[in-house]
Design a protein around this nucleic acid. Structure first.
Lengths: 345, 345
DNA sequence: ATGGTTTGTGCAAACGTTTTAACAAAGTAG
DNA sequence: CTACTTTGTTAAAACGTTTGCACAAACCAT
């Protein structure tokens, strides 16, 4: 059907090997031959068959990204999209393709990635965030298959990973509120089995402890964040006898739920409650009021993940130098956080 | 390195062909042999090499989705994510993998897809929305490569596509406002070179014309929607001597910009301005106030697109029966739209 | 001239499958 | 018992590349 290396060879009156070598810029090909062959390739509309190439080179020039199952991170969608963009952009630059895969359950997820890995369809995998005992991590680790984790693994701290220093990020965010004079600070977390939730929680606790502020468990909410649980969280929190004046919220999306809850209850932001959240999605800026948020460089995170993975795939067994990349974060202050009610400045 | 069909054959004391046939459930294999071979496969941990399979079968069992270049549809990110989920889910069910690709410019985009298509790395492609003269459509069309368009092509109405009836959707949305008593209705559109923008605009116009309402060009805004252009659009619109009492907005994300603009200007929604928008992203519900939005079934759209494409890929040349799928939409009324100032009920 | 290196090319074997054609063995009908 | 069909299996040729080895020709010091 379509034109092969042999057709080109025949027409150019050289052997297939020569054509192949022209393709890969082999140094021992004469300029004249190279030019001729290239001309003919152009003329005949030759394009190498990537499958055949893969078969012999035992390398696919593609990586896969495992999209976590939807349910538990509905609220991370926008973040994922940015991440994926970064991954795809970098992979393209390195000449890699990106396969995207997912499963409806954890079991399906590992099954999907097993198919790709076992079928030698990809050279490496990037995992988007990890649960506490992620079976996919387990699988890849045991198969010794190259992969990079966007996030942090508790069980395997030595794993190739790209991450935000979430403890520090949460610490910084809390410090921001504290520096504004807030002394009663609550926390709205994500699903407790996700490492990122745990880390942010820890940063929050540390900042409060260090500042000698009260750490009240009833100001801490964690859970799946669906439609109206932001509302419910707020209605619970705000009906306490003693209410926080500032809140850390684990993700901008969740913050939307929170804001809506507060609006319905008649509270005003930031006058009644200051909010700082995380991820700095495009939404944060468009919210009313615009949300103070810790930018974690989602695109950059993806970009680096892809880069790290591809480097790992391409270097044989010599130890990877740095095993854990931290992407810097930075707090973007907007209107949702203001001085505490008892003014200081 | 890894175990091949030949290794299994040797150990099972049959020929490679037999193993291959066991794999594909060939009817002429005896139950006994099949069982034995399967056992050995299991025992040795055999997994077929998909590349080799592809090479001979000339089919890759994968499709690609072309992510439009980021700039112009920042606001569609969330929508795309849903779409992709649908595509990936359906593809997985049909045993297909999904490759995702993009380019920084239109030229790069077509280059990226050309690589995949020419390299026979995918069996089909799904395009997410189309510009007016999309070069990717042009390329695929001319190559006679199977693809499905999520959206509508002006130039090629006969193309395989899955779409919302955007004219009708916009019409319905406008009717909703009209039925609430609004007589002054504006429109905030998307980039004018996108077909979806044009269609929604048309539905808006039609509804107003039909109802005999004034169609004022200064109530119509279109353009790239970035950070503060929502704000600017509103500040322009609301400073007109005669202001609309209701607005159609092309996308929930854009609506966020609009709402923020209105908030800053001191207008209240829906009291001062009713808003109906499109896509019904998860955000719509979380907004303050929650946004009335036309749900276009993004996931379903992606799911159907994938299904349609794969069917097309797998049936040879017999004409595809229905060439254009319309996914039903439905208006979800929330708090952003209310009776017009002059009450009727 | 001579031997040694460099340069340019081709042969053929691999990569791991599928599939066509061939064939032996076993079953079936007359 | 023979001729024909069915059943189960195999050998070998593809699929389109890459690459190690071989080798001739050209170049370069002696």
């Amino acid at each position: 059907m379509s034109v092969t290396i042999k057709d080109v060879a025949r027409k150019a009156d050289v052997s297939p090997s020569t054509v192949s070598r022209v393709l890969s810029n082999h140094p021992r090909i004469s300029a004249a031959t190279a030019r001729k062959v290239r001309e003919i390739m152009e003329e005949m509309g030759y394009h190498p068959n990537l499958m055949a190439k893969s078969l012999v080179s035992k390398t696919t020039k593609s990586i896969c990204v495992i999209l976590p199952k939807p349910a538990e991170e509905l609220f991370l969608n926008l973040f994922f999209m940015e991440l994926i963009r970064g991954i795809v952009a970098q992979a393209a630059r390195s000449g890699y393709d990106v396969l995207i895969s997912s499963g409806a359950s954890e079991a399906e997820e590992v099954e999907a990635v097993a198919r790709l890995v076992n079928g030698r369809r990809v050279d490496g995998a990037v995992l988007l965030y990890s649960r506490k005992d992620d079976p996919v991590v387990e699988f890849l680790k045991q198969r010794e298959f190259p992969f990079v984790l966007v996030g942090r693994s508790e069980r395997y701290p030595d794993i190739l990973s790209v991450d935000t220093d979430n403890v520090q990020a949460a610490y910084d965010a809390a410090r921001h509120l504290i520096s504004l004079g807030h002394e009663r600070i609550g926390f709205v977390g994500g699903p407790p089995n996700m490492v990122v939730s745990m880390d942010r929680m820890q940063g929050y606790r540390r900042a409060l402890e260090e500042a000698g502020l009260p750490l009240r468990e009833d100001w801490i909410v964690e859970g799946e964040f669906l439609q109206d649980s932001g509302y419910r969280a707020m209605s619970m929190l705000m009906s306490l006898p003693e209410r926080p004046s500032g809140m850390l919220v684990v993700d901008d999306f969740v913050t939307f739920g929170v804001i809506r809850g507060l609006n319905e209850l008649g509270y005003r932001i930031p006058q009644d409650l200051s909010i700082v959240s995380f991820n700095n999605l495009a939404l944060a800026e468009l919210s009313s009021p615009p949300i103070s948020s810790v930018d974690i460089g989602s695109y950059h995170l993806g970009y680096t993940a892809s880069q790290t993975l591809i480097r790992a795939v391409e270097t044989p067994r010599e130890e990877q130098t740095s095993v854990r990349h931290i992407i810097p974060h930075r707090l973007i202050v907007r209107e949702s956080s203001l001085f505490a009610p008892v003014r200081k400045a």
